[in-house]
Design a protein around this nucleic acid. Structure first.
Lengths: 186, 186
DNA sequence: CACGATACGGAACATTGTTCCGTTTATCAA
DNA sequence: TTGATAAACGGAACAATGTTCCGTATCGTG
């Protein structure tokens, strides 16, 4: 399978867009206007759409590595943590860390806006199985109630992370800890 | 204090707008375009802004009675429930009922969008004290941990309600129950 | 070096919130 | 009843943003 090599300027622009988007996401949030990203990368708006048909594709590309790392940490924690429940809690911590530092990502993930359907699907496909594994192990060990599905838990945690960092009176991490504590009941 | 009586057409239009907005909120969500509300009420867009300077004011006007009822239920539950914790849980249930049936309201409440600042403030001012009362009673009775503030709890619950009703795999009410269960730990 | 395919840039279009202004209408006094 | 006046109105106009289109420029290859 000989990969068709893209033109040099196309590859250059794609990288410039990824860099510009990453910076803009940090500075303004994932809902930064496309024109701002384009200007920052020194390209026209159409170039964004050519490389990333939807905004979701761009977000996915920017955060691919970090989400991948989070997914891979699941099995590792399962092996190294003192108990299945600990493994689950620590993994959820990683997830919260990730979401908490991405201004507006949690919001957009749960928004239901069709623009972000790809993003939502990608998160679910990649992370829910990992969470399900940890959750099942904890349930099998009798450490958490058995009637909660991974998708539900992740969505709840994601929801709790909305607005994290915008109001010092709201501590998303603490709320997630309380939710995880509630999981222990039957 | 003689109240300056507004013109008859102004009063008529204000009521028509409230009715149209209520219907549109149910049908489309609280983020329905202003033009759609105006058309439904048979008025021009400027008439909306004349009566309700911001979208938040319109939402507040539409839901005023229901939020008021929720606020008033707090002391009643406190008196009638078998325990302070039960009172708290039941009151939170009412709150979830309210949010769950208002498409997009939970989203908008936590969005941080300055457009909805008035709405956010109104919710906080009216409901947080009620929640604080119930929470303090439960904490005094040793039924819940004492380090969670009412604002934080309500915000967490509000967040968990985001997306309720748009995905049958996510049961906001169950997640709220789990959060409330987590509150019992120290 | 020339040519075809690829990619580009920015104008143009669509949607939505918000404001402005010329026109209409309700109210009240004569 | 009628006319003056302040209140209220409607819709055009403006601004911001997402998305698409098309004429032009550039890359890669023979």
């Amino acid at each position: 399978m000989t990969t068709v090599r893209k033109r040099a300027d196309a590859r250059r622009n794609e990288q410039a867009l990824l860099d510009a988007a990453a910076a803009a996401f940090v500075e303004t949030g994932v809902d930064v206007p496309v024109r701002a990203i384009a200007a920052r990368a020194g390209v026209g708006v159409a170039t964004i759409y050519r490389h990333f048909p939807t905004r979701a594709d761009l977000i996915v590309a920017v955060y691919r590595h970090q989400v991948e790392a989070c997914a891979e940490a699941g099995p590792e924690l399962r092996a190294s943590a003192p108990s299945p429940y600990d493994a689950l809690v620590r993994w959820i911590d990683l997830f919260v860390d990730f979401l908490g530092t991405k201004h507006g990502l949690a919001e957009v993930l749960q928004s239901g806006d069709p623009t972000y359907a790809t993003l939502h699907t990608w998160f679910v496909d990649r992370l829910v199985p990992v969470c399900a594994e940890l959750l099942a192990a904890a349930a099998d060990a009798g450490q958490v109630r058995g009637d909660v599905r991974a998708l539900e838990l992740m969505r709840g945690v994601g929801n709790l992370c909305i607005g994290a960092g915008t109001d010092e009176r709201y501590d998303a991490r603490r709320m997630v800890r309380i939710l995880m504590a509630g999981l222990r009941h039957d």
